[in-house]
Amino acid sequence: MVLLALLAILAPALAPWDPNRPDVRKILDAPSGVHPLGTDQLGRDVLSRMLYGARVSLAVGFVSVGIASLIGTMLGAAAGYHGGVVDATLMRLVDLMLVFPRFFLLLAVLAFLRPSIWTIMAVIGLTGWMGVARLVRAEFLALKEREFVVWSQAVGASGLRIVWRHILPNAMAPVLVAMTLGIPAAILTESGLSFLGLGVQPPHATWGNILNEGKDAIEIGWWLSVYPGLAILVTVLSYNLLGEGIRDALDPRLRQSVGRIVTRR
């Protein structure tokens, strides 16, 4: 995964060709020594386009998850800390957002806005904060009854300070897991949108829109369809495994239960 990030960051240095320079003499060339992953309909090098695409995909993943976590944490904290009406209202809002099939909502919003990398990031972030909000709220509900919080309330610390200094750091573990698992989900969503032609617009290369262009040449240029998808698969898989790993490491309960079963056997 570090390798993936490095590849994305170093794309300009690593890419053997200019990702956007067409070459009419090399239209739909099969993978070869010169173009390791072949060329597309305009004769552009697929490997270079994929390297640049990695930057877009990873950036969209990180930024949109950042937005989602920020909103989710703030609303979840407010709901969990205040309880009562605030909690009820915010949780109904979460329920409401969860009723919308995300793809339909994304498409509807994108129809009114002009799709670009920035709107995609914002829209994916704005429709993906509900899970984090629920997690943070649950953590807050449990934590605010604990002695150290009650104690700092008794000493007269302000609400904001208690939330920021005492509760939030303790509630971040599940958020971290959710963020790690949210990045691959956002990457999948972005590539899905780009695949439909409604995400990041050409000539910007992303894995999704390379696949979209590859679809039209499906009978000749299989390499256009296979490699970008494989890149998505590997990226998403590695983030998912990382997320699971963090979860196992942070959640002692899980390890215990696994241990119990082993001893029974």
Binding site: P184, L188, S191, G192, F195, L211, G214, K215, I218, S225, P228, G229, I232, L233, V234, V236, L237, N240, L241
Partner: peptide, 13 residues
């Protein structure tokens, strides 16, 4: 894990 990570449109292709 592979199922989670496979983009459905890619599988379709």
């Amino acid at each position: 894990f592979v199922g989670f990570a496979t983009p459905d449109f890619w599988l379709a292709l």
